[in-house]
């Protein structure tokens, strides 16, 4: 079994609106899968379907290699989760909440609650009732609850919401540790690109309920996404020079004042020299890294954008 989650044409319709529409995705064992999409893209709904909280209108879900049937509870033993803002029994203390969770999960290991609280750096507040917790603390406690039973699969919906930069950094380290030390599979959703980019092994891009692309970060990094961006007063003229005089084929005109050159062996210096010698005025020449952000924007804006990426990959 290499795929922990597999869905086929998974669809959920509320009223007449498709919230999740024909999603076919795969999450491999031991990877961090980043679910990327704007708010309202259907990330939470999809996670709720994996947990059985929301029943699919169509399609199939396979968890741990077994097809999910309505009312099946067995796989839930192996899943930790935090969907949306985590809810707790407000009057109970942090530790009591975790202990209750372990009891319902049927998980008994002495010190598990303490250990989980330490991992998310919630120290010295275990005996405070949760209603006194700040947003960030609740978020940490939610993560502690999700990981305390050492699940094989972790579903985390916007886990860094409400955390300070330091906290975000800590969680990033924690997620990698879980993957590397316990072999946990993580499905993490976020609308923040930079976040997903830093932590994910595979990225699934979701927009308006559809899975637009499923791609490994490795291939995004590998696919020679470096390019040189040229700002000039006349892009058409510059393009002509590039093609005729400098024999550069892999470039793209990004409007009337901008060009991108994807040839890996061309240095900005050579470009600058070549253009100026051919009477093209150059405002700036910068080497850039094609980030996940641009990739994402191109996809979600739809149309046109793919060319740049295809070209870059060629």
């Amino acid at each position: 079994m290499t795929d922990v989650i597999r869905t086929r044409l998974l669809t959920k319709t509320f009223g007449r609106q498709d919230v999740v529409s024909n999603v076919t995705m795969k999450v491999r064992k031991g990877e961090i899968y980043g679910f990327l999409g704007p708010n309202g893209a259907g990330k939470s709904t999809l996670m709720k379907m994996l947990l059985g909280l929301v029943k699919p209108t169509g399609g199939e879900i396979e968890l741990f290699g077994e097809r999910q049937l309505p009312g099946a509870v067995e796989p839930l033993k192996r899943i930790g989760h935090m969907i949306e803002a985590p809810v707790f029994y407000e009057k109970l203390t942090a530790e009591q909440n975790l202990e209750l969770h372990a009891e319902y999960m049927g998980y008994y290991r002495a010190g598990a609650a303490k250990e989980a609280l330490d991992l998310v750096q919630l120290i010295g507040v275990e005996n405070k009732p949760v209603k006194q917790f700040s947003l960030g603390m609740r978020q940490r406690l939610g993560i502690a609850r999700a990981i305390m039973t050492r699940p094989e699969l972790l579903l985390l919906d916007e886990p860094i919401n409400g955390l300070d930069p330091e906290g975000i950094q800590e969680m990033r380290v924690l997620f990698r540790r879980l993957r590397d030390e316990l072999g946990t599979t993580l499905l993490i959703s976020s609308h923040l690109l930079a976040e997903v980019e830093q932590v994910a092994d595979t990225v699934g891009i979701l927009d308006r309920g559809r899975l637009l692309q499923e791609v490994s970060m490795e291939s995004i990094r590998r696919s020679n996404t470096d390019y040189v961006e040229i700002k000039t007063s006349n892009a058409q003229q510059a393009a002509l020079v590039l093609e005729e005089k400098l024999q550069i084929r892999h470039y793209k005109i990004m409007g009337s004042h901008m060009l991108r050159v994807y040839d890996a062996d061309v240095t900005p210096e050579a470009l600058s020299k070549g253009l100026v010698l051919n009477d093209v005025s150059v405002e700036s020449i910068i080497r850039r890294h094609h980030s996940l952000e641009e990739y994402f924007l191109e996809l979600t804006r739809g149309g046109g954008g793919h060319a740049a990426f295809d070209q870059a990959g060629a």
Partner: peptide, 15 residues
């Protein structure tokens, strides 16, 4: 109402 029922329903226990 407090949505803790949704939490309970994610446990490996029949609803």
């Amino acid at each position: 109402r407090d949505k803790t029922m949704a939490l309970l329903f994610t446990y490996p226990v029949s609803r």
